[in-house]
Simulated assay, not measured.
Amino acid sequence: MADVQNRKRKSLSKISFRGVDAETLLNMSTEEFKPLLRSRGRRKFTRGIPKSHERFLEKLQKKKQEANGQKPAVVKTHLRNCMIIPEMIGSVIAVYNGKVFNVVDVRPEMLGRYLGEFSITYKPVARRNPNGNLPLSRMVSLK
């Protein structure tokens, strides 16, 4: 019993993106964040951010300021191809999947990925027997 109490508690792993810790990432601008991305992301930001993405980022910043330290209000979007950048961390975004808006809470682990990756567009098929839980290929005849 004493061993269990004396055992050190596992510390939570520090969140980092490509060797840069979360606190530094929060203070980074998009230009400072660009070299940390993979080639597809660097190319996207080098060519320029579309106006629709800029308006979306402005909405996110506005909702964050209105929140006053609490969880910001949900911002709906159809921009599935919008890449997650440090300015978005802590925001709550509803991403459209073609039918409904799926709510996504943006965390530091999501940096460099697209919003569409967190809002699945199809319903996974459960291949099951209508009379039982086993897949059809695993059914055993009872004869």
Rank of each mutant, 00 (worst) to 15 (best):
M1P: 09
A2W: 08
A2N: 07
D3T: 06
D3Q: 12
Q5A: 07
Q5H: 09
R7D: 03
K8D: 11
S11Q: 11
S11Y: 06
L12V: 08
S16C: 12
R18L: 02
V20S: 00
D21P: 07
A22H: 08
A22M: 12
A22I: 15
E23F: 12
E23N: 14
T24N: 03
T24E: 07
L25C: 12
L25W: 04
M28F: 12
M28R: 09
E31K: 14
F33W: 05
F33C: 03
K34R: 14
P35A: 04
P35M: 05
L37S: 05
L37G: 05
G41Q: 04
K44P: 00
G48M: 06
G48T: 06
G48Y: 13
G48H: 12
I49G: 00
P50A: 10
P50I: 06
S52I: 14
H53K: 00
E54Q: 15
E54W: 06
F56R: 09
L57R: 14
L57M: 12
E58K: 13
L60Q: 00
L60T: 05
K62D: 12
K62Q: 01
K62S: 03
K62Y: 01
K63M: 05
K63E: 12
K63S: 14
E66N: 02
A67I: 09
A67N: 03
N68W: 00
N68E: 07
G69Q: 00
Q70H: 02
Q70F: 00
P72Y: 00
P72D: 01
A73E: 15
K76E: 15
K76A: 12
K76W: 03
T77S: 13
H78W: 08
H78Y: 13
L79C: 03
C82M: 14
I85A: 08
I85P: 01
P86H: 05
P86F: 04
E87I: 00
M88G: 07
M88K: 01
G90L: 08
S91H: 11
V92D: 04
I93A: 05
A94E: 11
V95E: 04
V95T: 10
Y96Q: 07
Y96H: 13
Y96R: 04
G98A: 09
G98P: 06
G98C: 06
K99V: 01
K99A: 03
V100W: 11
F101H: 15
F101I: 09
F101C: 04
N102T: 14
N102K: 15
N102W: 02
D105F: 15
V106D: 07
P108K: 02
G112M: 10
R113Y: 11
G116C: 05
G116K: 03
G116Q: 10
G116F: 02
E117P: 01
E117Q: 15
F118C: 04
F118I: 11
F118T: 01
F118L: 04
S119W: 11
T121N: 12
T121D: 14
T121A: 14
P124E: 13
V125K: 15
A126D: 07
R128I: 11
N131C: 02
G132A: 10
P135S: 10
P135A: 10
P135T: 14
L136E: 10
L136W: 01
R138L: 03
M139L: 14
V140Y: 01
V140D: 09
S141Y: 10
S141P: 06
L142P: 00
